[in-house]
């Protein structure tokens, strides 16, 4: 018979939000990361407005301007960060690339969350054979590495349907592949949370009142698993962006006409040592900074959403 002497699991909900915000204010690094991340999101949203050139217009690509160095080397005010091998303004392309990379990352993780969340909830709440079956499926899925699956699927798709179709559907395919490949990560975490939550007395109380199973799952258990979900959400988005960049770098991601950050790095990579370093370096820096702040945020959230750390 446990006798609880201290309030356990304090700091929830309203105070959780308040707590996170006030803690954020105190932590310069976290605040910095959040600002940078917000800036990235803003840039991604407003890319068409911010970019000096419209990437979709016909005269955007002009081979006459190919491989121009950045502004401070050439004094050419038209291209702030220089141009790439096809004469596109690097700044515009990076802005659009960020938008693409973030979209792919977020959408892929949303798919992961949706699949993993549903499976994790069902698996955890119903338990028994269904749980065993779903978790073995998750194990099998995880035993194939994401990159391996993505490479195989994308390569097969490319050869089956040809390059033209692939170019059109590249983004969708990337989202689907990255989304489906990593659902078990969410499923496992959510299942573990549900397991911990469903034995708590408030769930019993709801059952005793006659609240339906679906409502218990959605209204009672799910909101209490939000904290860990938020943490992996941030980290998974970062991972998805890196995976997309890697795939693009290998030539299996976004086509050169619609370059994401990875594709940009890849296209500039060949010129890295022939003088045109900027084509590769600027997108790389953009990507690295994005991933860095997202991981910072994720780590920070993990520390501060932990009820033990947050409790008083």
């Amino acid at each position: 018979m446990n006798i609880w002497h201290r309030p356990q699991g304090v700091a929830e909900h309203t105070t959780r939000v308040r707590h996170v915000l006030s803690a954020m204010r105190g932590d310069k690094l976290a605040l910095f990361a959040l600002c940078i991340f917000a800036l990235y999101c803003l840039v991604a949203l407003l890319a068409p407005l911010l970019a000096p050139y419209d990437v979709n217009s016909v005269d955007f690509m002009d081979l006459e301007n190919a491989e121009l160095a950045p502004y401070w080397q050439t004094g050419d005010g038209r291209f702030l960060l220089g141009t790439d091998t096809q004469g596109r303004d690097l700044l515009s392309v990076i802005l659009y690339g960020t938008r693409l990379s973030l979209t792919i990352g977020v959408c892929a993780v949303l798919i992961q969350l949706l699949m993993g969340g549903t499976i994790g909830l069902l698996s955890g709440y119903i338990g028994g054979r269904l749980d065993a079956f779903l978790m073995r499926a998750a194990d099998i899925q995880l035993s194939f590495s994401t990159m391996m699956v993505a490479i195989v699927v994308l390569a097969v798709f490319q050869t089956l349907f040809g390059n033209a179709v692939y170019q059109q559907l590249a983004m969708l395919m990337l989202i689907l592949v990255l989304g489906i490949a990593e659902w078990p990560i969410f499923a496992r975490i959510i299942r573990a949370c549900v397991f911990a939550e469903k034995d708590k007395e408030y769930v019993d109380a709801a059952r005793v009142l006659g609240v339906s199973k679906v409502r218990i799952m959605l209204r009672h258990i799910l909101p209490n698993t939000v904290s860990p979900i938020l943490v992996i959400l941030t980290i998974q988005i970062a991972n998805a962006i890196v995976a997309e960049a890697a795939l693009s770098f290998l030539g299996l991601g976004m086509p050169p006409a619609q370059p994401s950050l990875g594709a940009l790095i890849s296209s500039g990579f060949n010129y890295l040592f022939s003088g045109a370093w900027w084509i590769s370096v600027f997108p790389s820096m953009t990507l690295i900074l994005l991933i860095f702040v997202m991981n910072l945020l994720g780590d920070w959230l993990r520390d501060h959403l932990n009820p033990q750390a947050a409790g008083g």
């Binding site: 909900h13 007395e201 709801a206 005793v208 009672h220």
Partner: peptide
């Protein structure tokens, strides 16, 4: 359910913290 109800041991766990 309408006729019998239950009060639980641990008041810190028996109320949903998010409601």
């Amino acid at each position: 359910r309408k006729k019998m109800q239950m009060v639980f041991q641990n008041p810190y766990a028996s109320l949903n913290p998010r409601m």
